[in-house]
Amino acid sequence: MGLTSPQAYIAFSIILLAIGVYCLVSKRNMIKTVIGIEVTTIAVNTALLSLSWARVATISHITGAMVEPLAEALVIISIVIGGAIAALALSLVVNAYRHYKTLDLKKLKRLRW
């Protein structure tokens, strides 16, 4: 099962990054903001993995995908941190809902980006 070139995956991660950042800047719902953060995290992780693969492909001409262990370890750490941040952000969302009875970011008085 041969994969296409790592460049396709780098492009994929850039598209995901654009989607995540678009979600962060344009959506008013706090849960959508959390989803945006997570999509951005996944995009950066994918970028790291595919850059590592691209590096292996340029130096050793191995066919098929291969990811170096250091990059994979960094991605695992980043995934775990993303989970922790999601949990913290969602607890803040629940608390904000208790105060405001809304999830709309525009209704939060001083929150200006």
Binding site: I37, R55, A71, H99, L111
Partner: peptide, 29 residues
């Protein structure tokens, strides 16, 4: 106030860390 400020801090600082991680991955490449 702390909830609102904390959420803002979390979103901005997480984005910052991700940008730094992107820089680190380019260094690694």
């Amino acid at each position: 106030e702390p909830i609102e400020a904390g959420f803002k801090y979390l979103v901005m600082s997480t984005l910052g860390s991700l940008v730094a991680l992107l820089g680190i991955s380019l260094l690694y490449y």
